[in-house]
Write a protein that binds this DNA or RNA. Structure first.
Length: 504
RNA sequence: GUCCCCUUCGUCUAUCGGCUAGGACACCGGGUUCUCAUCCCGGAAAGAGGGGUUCGACUCCCCUAGGGGAUGCCA
């Protein structure tokens, strides 16, 4: 039987925070490759980080992928023969596999405290040594280890790593990659809370789910040896590895929300068409064999050739995306454009929310639209002075906006009352009259000093657009000379962490 | 620090040893349009540097430089 295995690919996002544009990017290439080869595409939720994963975020990932038009053949929502597709529901599987490794002495329990580990890291950094676990617990006898476990000591499972030689593996796009084993840490496989780390869960799942091609971001190249080792220890065939270049900010760093809107939901709310977004993503690190730049998902799949991927990290260019979006909009008939507008936001559902807010403030029917426009735009025009309103100096405004951004990001249930609570909390902690704080927010969020009720408006706008508006406000302040430099930002973040609790 | 990856216009890219280096976005100029947008025409704009290999190198190899990534009980 030398039947070629069916192609099975997957995207495996972790549900922490807003659905990332990079997830759609990776998903697109996985999807196209699978479909091109009559294979299957799987969506797996990697929610092994219990402190950061939320079901809200998971739902957003489903919605976001659905919005761009990438449908998984198997997923937590759709089910499938290799489920469950949510890692938090597979802990028994990981535990079983981890035990196998411990029994075969490929892994061992480690009792080192996180304090010792940070101290160790600090020392290594200072001594300019290679940073990593020093193997203190690796020499513990099985009996001693068991005794400590029985005593109820907290522990993790680490994997043993060869002490010399190189790990050699193949990357479809780059060819042979060789990484010295000395560079590979004795990775934690099982955390003290009983959940696996990415590395263990990922390898186990990819094998059990019969993933044939692991197509993922370049950031994973360095940990591939850990995965290779696990495949080896389990005696499994390894999949083909394809590492895609990383999407970048204009300054070439890895795409981050600090510098770019990265939430798919933002693009949705800001009025981009999913086809245009997907089309644009298909041009990142890739080009069609015939050179065409405007194409549908079907056309993309039809001619897809994974070996055409180019490796320089592409900069995500909002201008070009906007142009593409414009091209798509112009192609629509007026009727279908109207349809797009309705499915977007310009519909009765929205007006039913807006009208009660506007009604008490109306003198004529004609007053409605000016009041409501801010709900249907992306960037607002206003003078920076209005933001400050002679009440707050630019320095303080910057601080308040940044803190609000961080606080608003943390809200799990995006509702008027939770928003109010958050803002109220900020005004208290920052010792600023709510009235003053709100004045600034009114301008940042609605573009005017006087507008519809703020918290309701923020709710209707959605978190992503609100965060973007704050970003624009900060940008305005920055162009006026109040820049939150790296150093200042770091300091602020530190203060913030102690005052408001850590940001993840 | 260490390791890994990458390197063509400002940006996304084409080129798989023959190049007057092509296209797209952005930019500039001109035309169409009551304005604007669209549309059309035109322009400026690139092979990081240095060594090889070769009749010939943007394409292959090496070195240097630059950029990025990894170095977590995050993924």
């Amino acid at each position: 039987m030398t039947n070629k295995k069916t192609v099975r690919t997957r995207v495996a996002p972790s549900p922490t925070g807003a659905p990332h544009i990079g997830t759609a990017y990776i998903a697109l290439f996985n999807y196209a490759f699978a479909k091109k080869h009559d294979g299957e595409f799987i969506l797996r939720i990697e929610d092994t980080d219990q402190t950061r994963s939320t079901s809200e975020s998971e739902t957003e990932i489903f919605d976001a992928l659905k919005w761009v038009g990438i449908n998984a053949d198997e997923s937590p929502a759709a089910g499938g023969p290799k489920g469950p597709y949510r890692q938090s529901e597979r802990t028994d599987i990981y535990r079983k596999h981890c035990n196998m490794l411990v029994e075969n002495d490929k892994a061992y329990p480690c009792f080192c405290s996180s304090e010792r580990l940070t101290e160790l890291r600090k020392e290594q950094l200072a001594a300019k040594e290679m940073v990593g676990y020093d193997g203190l617990c690796s020499t513990l006898s099985k009996e001693d280890a068991q005794k400590r476990i029985d005593n109820g000591e907290s522990y993790v499972i680490r994997m043993r790593v060869p002490e010399s030689g190189d790990c050699v593996f193949n990357d479809r796009l780059r060819g042979e990659i060789s990484i010295p084993w000395t560079q590979v840490d004795q990775q934690v496989l099982m955390k003290s809370d009983g959940f696996p780390t990415y590395h263990l869960a990922n390898v186990v799942d990819d094998h059990l789910m019969e993933i044939s091609h692991v197509i993922r971001g370049e950031e994973w190249i360095n940990s591939t040896p850990k995965h290779v080792l696990l495949y080896q220890h389990f005696g499994w065939d390894r999949p083909e590895f394809v590492h895609l270049p990383l999407l970048r900010n204009p300054d070439q760093s890895k795409l981050s929300k600090r510098k770019n809107p990265t939430s798919i939901l933002y693009y949705q709310r800001a009025g981009y068409l999913p086809q245009a977004v997907l089309n644009y993503l298909g041009l990142m690190g890739y080009s069609m064999p015939d050179g065409s730049e405007i194409f549908s998902l079907d056309q993309f799949i039809e001619s897809f050739d994974i070996d055409r991927i180019s490796l320089g990290g592409p900069i995500f260019d909002l201008q070009k995306l906007a142009n593409f979006n414009g091209q798509y909009l112009r192609e629509l008939t007026p009727d279908s454009l109207l349809g797009e507008l309705k499915t977007w936001n310009l519909n009765d559902d929205m007006w039913k929310e807006v009208i009660p807010l506007a009604q008490p403030r109306l003198k004529t029917l004609a007053d409605l639209m000016p009041m409501a426009t801010f709900l249907f735009t992306d960037k607002l025009e206003y003078a920076t002075e209005e933001l400050l309103n002679n009440q707050i100096d630019a320095e303080r405004a910057t601080r308040l906006l940044k803190i609000s951004q961080w606080e608003l990001e943390k809200i799990v249930n995006w509702h008027g009352d939770t928003i109010q609570e958050t803002i109220g909390n900020i005004s208290e902690k920052e010792d600023i009259k709510t009235k003053k704080l709100l004045a600034m927010f009114f301008v940042a969020i609605t573009g005017k000093k006087v507008s519809l009720p703020l918290f309701n408006s923020m709710m209707l706008l959605g978190r992503d657009l609100v965060l973007r508006r704050i970003h624009y406000a900060l940008e305005n302040l920055a162009t006026d000379g109040t820049v939150l430099s790296g150093k200042k930002l770091k300091k602020l973040q530190k203060e913030y962490n102690s005052l408001y609790g850590n940001r993840s």
